[in-house]
């Protein structure tokens, strides 16, 4: 995600939290209100020309977070119709609206109910895992999760990822590898050896900040 601006469609409780969370990633964040009167107001009438006055639509990510799912889906389909390459992140309540939003052209969907349910169940059933994941995601401990792009595959001497002792050699744990074709694979997905590390692969790693930095230097660059 290298866009400079973010547009948030919808003014509600989610707006504040999303705005707060993504503020460090974007130079400009604009919140647009449905049926608002000022320049940051919008309606669902397909008139998106005014948006170009606010941000460069080619360098922007859009969050569709209207609470009325029918309106949110309509907004998503309307934006996709006008901006074919735009990154659209949409809020979905349940699986049904999640599927519809993907059909409507959303790049990513944030399913609120199923994600909330997953986290609540994890909290109860796997409290330690939840705490650890929470600390990693919220960066409340020194542990971090990062994605690192391989630019120097020669150092692995054509080894299979599962054969490398990441934790002992580099002090980090590799969870999964995303190949160039964007297919993702868990490090020990099967007992078979599938893939030799190539340039352009992305590692998802967990570790302490310094270890991750050292690892980055060794194999490539952090992928933002």
């Amino acid at each position: 995600m290298n866009e400079k601006s973010a547009l948030i469609f919808g003014q509600n409780d989610y707006t504040f939290e999303i705005q707060k969370s993504i503020s460090s990633h974007y130079e400009n964040i604009h919140v647009l209100t449905l049926n608002g009167d000022d320049e940051f107001g919008f309606d669902l009438s397909d008139e998106w020309d005014a948006l170009s006055n606010i941000v460069d639509m080619n360098d922007c990510v859009v969050f569709c977070i209207l609470e009325d799912m029918a309106e949110n889906i309509f907004l998503t389909i309307s934006l996709r119709d006008t901006f074919k390459e735009l990154t659209i992140v949409a809020l979905a309540r349940d699986k049904e609206s999640s599927d519809k939003l993907i059909l409507a052209g959303a790049s990513r969907v944030l399913p609120t109910i199923s994600t909330t349910a997953n986290v609540i169940v994890e909290m109860l059933e796997k409290p330690i895992i939840t705490e650890v994941l929470h600390n990693i995601l919220y960066e409340e401990s020194d542990l971090q999760i990062a994605q690192i792009k391989v630019e120097n595959p020669d150092m692995f001497e054509a080894k299979y990822p599962a054969d490398i002792d990441w934790s002992r050699d580099h002090g980090i744990i590799v969870i999964s590898i995303v190949h160039e074709d964007m297919s993702s694979e868990f490090i020990y997905a099967s007992k078979e050896k599938h893939h030799i590390i190539r340039s352009g692969d992305i590692f998802v790693v967990v570790g302490y900040a310094q270890d991750i930095k050292d690892f980055e230097k060794l194999i490539g660059s952090r992928c933002e």
């Binding site: 939290e17 707060k20 992140v89 990513r108 909330t116 990693i136 999760i145 995303v178 993702s184 998802v204």
Partner: peptide
């Protein structure tokens, strides 16, 4: 709502890591 915010942050910051988690 806070969870949605955190997920949005992970998504815009590290989409691959977000997918993994």
């Amino acid at each position: 709502k806070k969870l949605v915010g955190v997920i949005a942050k992970e998504f815009v910051g590290q989409p691959v890591a977000f997918e993994a988690i």
